[in-house]
Amino acid sequence: MDAVLLLLADSRLPAGGHAHSGGLETAAATGVVHDLATLTAFLRGRLATAGLVTAGLAAAACAHAREPAGNAPPGGAAPRARTPDGWERLDAEADARTPSPAQRRASRAQGRALLRVARGLWPGFVLDLPAGAAGGPHHPIVLGAAVAAAGGVPVRAAQIAAYGAVTVPASAAIRLLGLDPLGVYRVLAGLAARVDAVAAEAAASVRAGGLPAASAPALDVFAELHDRAGTRLFES
């Protein structure tokens, strides 16, 4: 993977990820996650659901951003424009796959932060989102567009999204539960092949004209419980 894409995958990227736990804070508060074994189960579930969905959205956004604007495809048919409609559709697809309002807000907050980073990295970076995308663009959509701006292909966008789907809660688990960081990274290394597989599945689905739509009701409930909790250290 190109180093510029590694920047986008790095948890030190100043795009607000450090303040999100991906549901882990509620999972820890309710005792669902309390050690490495329960963390592993949580991360596997999150990767197979939210991870697959965000990987698909990131791959689709990357593919959309890479379409040449206004270039006529072979055969002389009508030009395929990189239309605002495309971004609007992706925004709606992300909303449709994010039933929890708290999760939608968290995704858009992280999208705004990543957009700020992308504009800093590539001054010409634009995302023609409709004004209706209140609260900013969804995070995986900005990620996909940023990977395209960095010269990356959809499967790389999917990989970074799937990787973030497990590293964000893993980092929160280290901070909230005091889990041994070496143990947590052993868990992450054990999941690495699954991360790659989820990314490949998401990218293949997008290439075939689809978009993964796995759901995780427990994560939706955790997000809403978190939003209502009095004491919380993380934004989500």
């Binding site: 795009a15 450090h18 705004r112």
Partner: peptide, 12 residues
């Protein structure tokens, strides 16, 4: 971190 290394939420 929120005031020095990753200020995005504060800027927002």
């Amino acid at each position: 971190t929120a005031i020095r290394d990753d200020i995005s939420a504060n800027l927002d």
